[in-house]
């Protein structure tokens, strides 16, 4: 586990939103699993930290939750994206892309004009 990266502050919410957008309504365990898989198991995610983050998104109105039954018949709370959540996701994704693009330009090996 030592060479795994911790989740950066503030990015967990974006990952959660994107995961729900991709997979549709999903329970907390599923979201955690999916984030780990998507990162190619490079991210170390304490599953417990996901729940306060989900609560925060729900309080902010980005996601909504309801009880349902999982694929192997376990009772679970399913989270789905709201319209506000979709907007938030689009905006956050765009911001993030811009940030990474800028950073990428800085870090490109050939460099810009000297």
């Amino acid at each position: 586990m030592g060479d795994k990266t911790d989740v950066w502050q503030g990015t967990l919410a974006l990952m959660v939103l994107k995961t729900i957008e991709t997979l549709g309504p999903l329970h907390g365990y599923g979201i955690a699993r999916r984030i780990e898989q998507t990162s190619g198991n490079l991210l170390s995610l304490n599953y417990g930290t996901l729940y306060p983050a989900l609560l925060k998104l729900e309080q902010e109105g980005a996601i909504a939750s309801e009880w349902g039954v999982s694929e192997n018949n376990r009772k679970a709370k399913f989270y789905r994206l709201t319209r506000a959540g979709r907007k938030q996701l689009d905006k956050a994704a765009l911001d993030w892309e811009q940030t990474t693009a800028i950073l990428a330009r800085f870090l490109a090996p050939s460099g810009g004009p000297a």
Binding site: Y51, N72, R74, A76, K77
Partner: peptide
Amino acid sequence: RELAAEIDGHLQMHIDD
């Protein structure tokens, strides 16, 4: 109560896996 149930479900699913 709800949180206890949610975490319980989470653990069950993880254990199943």
